[in-house]
Amino acid sequence: MDLMGMMGKLKETQQKIEDTKKRLDTVLIDEQSTDGLLKVTLTANRSVKSITIDDSLLEDKEQLEDYMILVINKAIEKATKVNEAELDAVAKMDMPMIPGMDNLFK
């Protein structure tokens, strides 16, 4: 087993993962309520970029809070899927299969 080669490969993969994480900061995920009154934009790294609230939602604090929770959670779910798919692709592409190593990048 070529340990030096594997360590080099591991470093390379870690670098690719870092690069992918940086790139995911520029991937935007848009989500909105079914009536379009609340819109949220996240990065694929699950960082909120913008929230747009229709004035009609400002009348009803409880409805607005419900909308926020619902829409933000949906956006986080979408962003998480994109994030995991991208990082999995990098890890699978470059990783020599070593038993027990597949949990390292989770």
Rank of each mutant, 00 (worst) to 15 (best):
D2E: 12
L3D: 04
G5Q: 13
G5D: 12
G5K: 14
M7D: 02
M7V: 08
M7E: 07
G8N: 15
G8H: 12
K9L: 11
K9I: 02
K11F: 13
K11Y: 10
K11V: 04
E12M: 13
T13Y: 06
Q14K: 15
I17F: 13
I17N: 05
D19H: 12
T20S: 12
K22L: 09
L24F: 13
D25F: 08
D25V: 02
V27E: 10
L28F: 15
L28G: 01
L28P: 00
D30I: 00
Q32A: 09
Q32R: 06
S33Q: 04
G36Q: 05
G36F: 04
L37V: 01
L37I: 01
T41K: 12
L42P: 00
L42H: 01
T43N: 10
T43Q: 09
R46S: 13
S47G: 10
V48T: 12
S50Y: 03
I51H: 02
T52M: 09
I53M: 03
D54K: 07
D54V: 03
D55F: 04
D55W: 03
S56L: 10
S56W: 03
L57M: 09
L58K: 15
E59T: 13
D60Y: 13
D60Q: 14
Q63E: 10
L64H: 09
E65V: 08
E65R: 11
E65A: 14
M68Q: 13
I69T: 15
V71A: 02
V71I: 04
I72Q: 04
N73T: 11
K74L: 03
K74D: 07
K74V: 00
A79L: 00
T80K: 15
N83W: 04
A85L: 09
E86F: 04
E86R: 07
L87V: 06
L87Y: 07
A89L: 05
A91C: 07
A91F: 12
M93I: 00
D94E: 11
M95L: 14
M95C: 09
M97N: 11
I98N: 05
P99A: 10
G100C: 03
G100H: 08
M101S: 08
D102Q: 13
N103K: 15
L104F: 15
L104V: 13
L104E: 09
F105K: 05
